[in-house]
């Protein structure tokens, strides 16, 4: 897998008139997992978007090496298409070797995306991320809506991705059952 890394220095985030947090630095490289923890509204999703380069930080800078895959609350799959076709659209753009991760979607491939349940949509998003071939995964609440079995399976897939040389940043208010996670509590940086 291609070399990857993410270094964020002294990030501050402003939404509207409020500064959500400031002075936050983090770095992750191949094999590393960072868990962004904190209560609702603390700015986890905004930080994920800043790390992805979709949102400009109010202060600080982010350096990225390697491709990025993002899974947030927006599925980015065409609702009217069967899941197989919707996923195939991204594969035609990415043309990557899909990772051998099973999210139990085999029975759902002919179901239009808009009929998928919350947990199934989450698994579809993770499958899209895994198939992108990007080494750096940014996951916003990846375990929301997953049942106990798939919570374990999803974490196993994240773990396997890191063992293969990838890096993962997870924003989640839930505790993670992953080993060697670098946890960053956003509350510590609240203004």
């Amino acid at each position: 897998m291609q070399e990857c890394g993410l270094v964020a220095t002294d990030i501050a985030c402003r939404r509207g008139d409020r500064i959500l947090f400031r002075g936050l630095s983090l770095s992750v490289r191949s094999g590393g997992i960072v868990h962004l923890a904190g209560p609702n509204g603390i700015g986890k999703s905004s930080l994920i978007r800043i790390l992805a380069g979709l949102l400009r930080p109010y202060a600080g800078m982010v350096e990225r090496t390697g491709g990025i895959a993002l899974a947030d609350e927006r599925l980015a799959l065409d609702g009217h298409q069967p899941l197989a076709q919707a996923l195939a659209f991204w594969q035609r753009i990415d043309r990557a070797e899909p990772e051998q991760a099973d999210f139990g979607l085999a029975d759902l491939l002919d179901v239009p995306v808009r009929y998928l349940s919350t947990g199934q949509r989450k698994r579809a998003a993770l499958a899209r991320v895994a198939a992108s071939g990007a080494p750096l995964w940014l996951l916003d609440e990846p375990l929301n809506g997953l049942d106990t079995y798939w919570t374990e399976q999803a974490q196993a897939a994240i773990d396997a991705h890191c063992r293969a040389g990838g890096a993962v940043v997870i924003a989640s208010h839930q505790p993670l059952a992953l080993e060697a996670v670098d946890e960053i509590k956003l509350l510590d940086f609240q203004v």
Partner: peptide, 12 residues
């Protein structure tokens, strides 16, 4: 935009 497709394209 609503479905996040433009975000995904930007990342690529």
């Amino acid at each position: 935009v609503e479905a996040g497709l433009f975000d995904q394209w930007a990342l690529r």
